[in-house]
Design a protein around this nucleic acid. Structure first.
Lengths: 142, 142
DNA sequence: CTACCTGCAAATTATTTGCCTTAAC
DNA sequence: GTTAAGGCAAATAATTTGCAGGTAG
C-alpha cells in the first residue's frame, strides 16, 4: 500500500514543520485503500476499523492536509457533502454519474479538454482547472 | 418584468394545488430582476427591499418551488452555498469562472455537448444533464 | 371554511474551532 | 522542552422543519 504516497505526505509534512502521527498514517492508508469518491464520514468509518479512538475532526483535518499536499482533490456531486479522490498516480478525469443507482464512471476525453482550452482563450482566460460532470441513467437503470 | 415566467409559475402552482401569494410573487420578481447566480441569502436581501416582512425560510421554500417548476436551476461553484439562475427563456450554458475576482462568463459549445453525448452513449448511459465549469484567471486578473 | 402558506424559532447537517491533554521531534 | 496534533464538545453556516396563526381559493 502506497509507499510513494506515504512519501509525498511525509515530505509535505516535513517541509511545513508539521508532525507525522499514527492518525495521519491511518487516515492516508484508509483513504488509499478506499474506493474513490469517499466522503469524510465514510472515511471516518473506514479509519475507525483500524484506529477506533480517532476523532471525526482529525479525519476532516487530515483530508484538508491531503488536499493541500496534492494527494487528494475535493469533489462535489451536489449531494450536500464534499467527497475526495486520490490524485497521486491517478491522472485527471471527469465523471459520468448515474442519478438512479449512484454508479460513477470516470472518463477522459482529450478533444473535450482541447475545446475547453479554446473557449477559455477566446474569453481571455488562463485556465487552471475544470470540472465536468455528466448526469444520466446507466444501462441497468434505464 | 417577466409576464411569461409569472405564468409558468402560476400554472405550476395551480396544477399542484398550491397557492399564489404575494411573497411568492415578490421572490419571483426579485429573482428575475437579479443578476444570475444569486444565493438564497442575496435574494433574501433583494426581496426584503420590496417586502420587508418576508422570512428567509420563505425565500428558500420559494427557490425550491421555482426549481421544481422548471424556472430556476441550482448551481454550485464550490463556495459552500447553492446559487440559482433563471432557466426560462435562457438556454443552457456552461460557466467560465475567474477564481480571483469571481467574474463569470457564460458560454455554450455545441461540439463539446456533442462529444459528451458520445461519451455517455459509449458507456451505455442515457444523458439527462451535465455541468461543466471552467476555472481560471480572467484577462484583468492574470 | 379548509388547506396551504408564512414567519419565527428550533432542528439538522456538514464542517470547523477552542481548549486542554498528549505525543512528535 | 517546545510546539503541533488529537479528542471532545461547542461553535458555525447553510438549509430545513415544526408549529400556531394568517390567508388564498
Amino acid at each position: 500500500m502506497g509507499r510513494r504516497e506515504q512519501q509525498v505526505l511525509e515530505d509535505y509534512i516535513v517541509q511545513h514543520n508539521l508532525k507525522i502521527t499514527k492518525q495521519r498514517r491511518s487516515v492516508l492508508e484508509a483513504f488509499l485503500g478506499s474506493e474513490d469518491h469517499v466522503s469524510a464520514e465514510e472515511l471516518y468509518k473506514l479509519v475507525t476499523e483500524k484506529e477506533p479512538k480517532i476523532g471525526l475532526a482529525t479525519v476532516y483535518r487530515t483530508l484538508n492536509l491531503l488536499t493541500q499536499s496534492g494527494l487528494a482533490s475535493e469533489l462535489d456531486f451536489g449531494d450536500g457533502q464534499k467527497r475526495y479522490e486520490h490524485k497521486f498516480m491517478h491522472s485527471h478525469h471527469d465523471h459520468l454519474i448515474c442519478t438512479e443507482c449512484g454508479k460513477i464512471v470516470e472518463f477522459t476525453h482529450p478533444m473535450i479538454e482541447k475545446l475547453q482550452e479554446e473557449v477559455a482563450i477566446r474569453q481571455g482566460f488562463k485556465l487552471t482547472s475544470h470540472k465536468l460532470d455528466l448526469f444520466g441513467l446507466c444501462a441497468e437503470c434505464s
